[in-house]
Amino acid sequence: MKRDTLISANNVSVHYPINGGKLLGPKPVVRAVENVTLNITKGSFFGLVGESGSGKTTLGRAMLKAAPITNGIVNFNDGEVNYSLSNMSSKELKDYRTRSQLIFQDPYAALSPRMTVRDIIAEPLEIMKLTSSREETDRRVREIAAKCRLNLEHLRRFPHAFSGGQRQRISIARALVSEPKFVVADESVAALDVSIQADVLNLLKEIQQEMGLTFLFISHDLSVVAHICDHVAVMYFGRLVETAPTRELFNNPCHPYTKALLSAIPSLDPDAKNLAQKLEGEIPSPTNPPPGCKFQTRCPHAIDICRRDEPQLESVGVEHNVACHRWQELM
């Protein structure tokens, strides 16, 4: 583990058993995350992109110890504690829950309609018994609400009275009230309109700098990721296929899937049609994937070796890694 790493995954896999298959023999599994290795530096805004079902949420949850880690090691070291997530006592796990948090995807579903905004934000403090008096709880709720630009008058209201952007600020305040070090934001702005999205993104960025947070920012919107993240990892079919500093990834994408992703971002110019590299072919079956590169079924450059050997991440440049047999030829 590098010195300035806050959290790292080493060859992490998450497999979910599914029904079906033969009566005897191994139970079929969905390999939601397969052999993922990644380091998130302290204070980083780390983006995770990839198509739906590629395993982003599962990887994020594994790093929060909220998904079962089948293989591999997740390490968390914030300078105060050093945990290996698969190997924690229940006391350590409780402590880890205060140091890591998830911001929910859907600001409409995530907030209980019967609780006031104050109680929603205070709940993590109360559940984890992080404060010793009601006064202290109130003070911390007010502090974080102010940081999240919530009107303190509104703390007494119920969440249904709020717009999507305000609700998202409430869920952010709730996630941050325990003063975590590591925050997973799963599609936190996907349900928001661009006008509010810009506001929430600016807020996240501000708070990150103010509180020294480290973010894993899961999104399928590459233009959002480009603006807010300093590093990006691209996932495909449970694997990381490319990781790089944001600008490097956007200026010099090396994996064919990353290239296709970048070219498919819809442009505001109606005449920019057809620039998108159209991907043909199917995503392989999750229970019975082919050997070799998992992108072979859609990759326009697949050759024999791709159908035989699974490419491993290799270094392309400073902090830039790619898993493709042919990246050099395709430059």
């Binding site: 661009v194 810009a198 993104l201 600016n202 233009s223 480009a226 603006h227 956007f250």
Partner: peptide, 17 residues
């Protein structure tokens, strides 16, 4: 609405809600 969009051709400009 159009000004609030994160634009790929200009990563440095701040987002304008």
């Amino acid at each position: 609405l159009i000004k609030a969009l994160p634009r790929l051709d200009d990563l440095d400009s701040p987002l304008t809600p």
